[in-house]
Design a protein around this nucleic acid. Structure first.
Length: 489
RNA sequence: GGCGACGUACCCAAGUGGCAAGGGGGAGGUCUGCAAAACCUUUAUUCAGCGGUUCAAAUCCGCUCGUCGCCUCCA
């Protein structure tokens, strides 16, 4: 299994610290607002990675944090006239609402910064003792900074040269720091801000230190995989490395994994640019699985352009899967118990099923190439449809189709896709498309049309079809009845 | 300015040395009372451009053009 390591810039064989076990830490969100679709991508990417690692038999411990105290949360609390911790909790709740919809599983450990103040203080104290950090008085309290120049490898992840950083005009000059590139481990608290007691007086943690403290506490001093969005590479992850390795003297993470951005008009989606859509907004128009498929359909490191057209594509794609699942279900319901009819050759499907897991795994083994894996799923879908078109019958055919459906749904489950019934899919589409027809109303129309068809009143039958079609519902006549589905396009 | 990516058909998207996956869309066909779905055929002699290495390059190297990201909070 190969994984791209941002540290080395190349794909490497995944060799965990302890055979058969993986520890993974992904940087989560700062909870001061609703998540946008870029946060969704990151969450989905690491969800897929952790699911796949487990599928491959690694005993995986996955931690994803919440940053629940920081400047933006405090600012938000002041704006909303709420307590800062109430703001944090509110957006943690919102986060779970979104992620549950998107099929993002809870991480094994979801540590919050505010629950690890002690651990952070321990790390900071250790860094001061070792000479990597220094305290600077600010009134009655002190702030603590990490002395970047003391850490020889600073810049190794983001490939930045410390001299360049120091000469760069964009580093804000802060008189309290010994060097402009130094970063805060602990911030002396100002009037009205949340604070904790510490050896440096009343204060609160800097941003980066929480990940170091929480990763070490929950996963150990060296972890296997550390991930997050590509924008966290610098300074966040660079600083984590500096703190952690200065503190423990050990490599912090073996593999650094960064997901690409979601763009709008080719530009990175971000809060500051204002070009973002919240997950909630998108969920109002699209089924959550559509968003998930949209994300998984591209490689996790590639930028993906967000647009209605892209989501419509993903929706059509998903509909194709569910249509095939529906065909298989129909077949299973009526295939007989007798021997099969002659002239139906199952070889192609049989062969594809035999090799399928292998294809799927080689795609995913190669740096989690979910886009290729989905391509393989399409090949399977076509082969299934091809087989069903031959109108097979009998118990051998039924067994083959059962195997096909299991293969499709079990590999889909690794990506957390295709977990619903085709009916659930269509009912969901009815909702997101705001189609004002109930299932019962549609069924009623179908009966009406059946009566017309039975008396060969084609004009009437067609008018029912046409009326439903204009409402976004397509009817499919099958041997033993008519079914409906929501029109895609 | 420093550093790092990327540029594959009408659209999306795999592919890191050996005849360019897959999906959408388009065109034609099979099936169907009419449809839909599905299937079949077709849609890139070519991978931004120009050179080079090689028996062989979308894949490696160099240059050019274009786009984006990081260098400040950011998934």
């Amino acid at each position: 299994m190969r994984i791209y390591n941002s540290m080395t810039g190349s794909k490497e064989e995944l060799v965990p610290l302890q055979p058969g076990k993986i520890t993974m830490y992904a940087c989560g969100v700062t909870v001061y607002d609703r998540c946008h679709i870029g946060h969704a991508r990151s969450a989905i990417v690491f969800d897929v990675i952790s699911r796949y690692l487990r599928y491959k038999g690694f005993e995986t411990t996955f931690a994803r944090n919440f940053t629940d105290v920081d400047d933006k949360i405090i600012k938000r609390a002041n704006e909303e006239n709420m307590a800062w911790d109430a703001v944090a909790q509110k957006y943690i709740d919102e986060y779970y609402l979104d992620m549950d919809m998107l099929g993002v599983a809870r991480a094994d450990i979801e540590p919050r910064a505010t629950e690890h103040i002690e651990e952070m203080i321990d790390v900071i104290s250790g860094l001061i003792e070792k000479g990597f950090a220094y305290a600077v008085a600010e009134g009655d309290n002190s702030s603590v900074y990490f002395a970047v120049e003391k850490f020889a490898d600073y810049g190794k992840l983001s490939k930045k040269d410390l001299d360049d950083l120091l000469s760069g005009a964009r580093v804000s000059v802060d008189e309290r720091k010994k060097s402009p590139a130094d970063f805060a481990l602990w911030k002396a608290s100002k009037e009205g801000e949340p604070f904790w007691e510490s050896p440096w007086g009343k204060g609160r943690p800097g941003w980066h230190i929480e990940c170091t403290a929480m990763a070490i506490k929950h996963l150990g001093e060296s972890i296997d995989i550390h991930g997050g969005g590509a924008d966290l590479t610098f300074p966040h992850h660079e600083n984590e490395i500096a703190q952690s390795e200065a503190y423990t003297g050990k490599p912090f993470a073996r593999y650094w994994v960064h997901n690409g951005f979601i763009t709008i008009d080719k530009e990175k989606m971000s809060k500051s640019l204002g070009n973002f859509f919240t997950i909630r907004e998108v969920l109002a128009k699209y089924d959550p699985e559509v968003i998930r498929l949209f994300v998984i359909s591209s490689h996790y490191r590639s930028p993906i352009e967000f647009s209605n057209e892209q989501l419509r594509d993903a929706e059509a794609t998903l509909d194709r899967f569910y249509t095939t699942i529906s065909r298989m279900d129909d077949f299973a319901a009526k295939s007989g118990d007798a021997a099969g009819k002659s002239g139906v050759n199952p070889t192609a499907l049989d062969a594809m099923l035999s090799g399928f897991r292998n294809s799927f795994e080689s795609a995913m083994d190669d740096d989690f190439n979910s886009a290729l894996a989905i391509g393989h799923l399409f090949e399977l879908v076509r082969e299934i449809n091809r087989y069903l078109d031959m109108k097979p019958s009998g118990r051998d055919a039924a067994a083959l189709i059962t195997r096909a459906k299991e293969t499709l749904t079990e590999t889909g489950a690794v990506l957390n896709l295709f977990g619903r019934t085709p009916h659930q899919w269509n009912v969901s589409l009815l909702k997101v498309r705001n189609i004002p027809l109930s299932e019962a109303a549609i069924e009623e129309k179908i009966s009406e049309r059946k009566a017309a068809r039975d008396s060969k009143d084609w004009a009437k039958a067609d008018s029912v079809r046409k009326a439903l079609d204009e409402g976004g519902i397509i009817l499919e006549d099958k041997k033993d009845g008519t079914t409906w589905k929501v029109k895609i396009a």
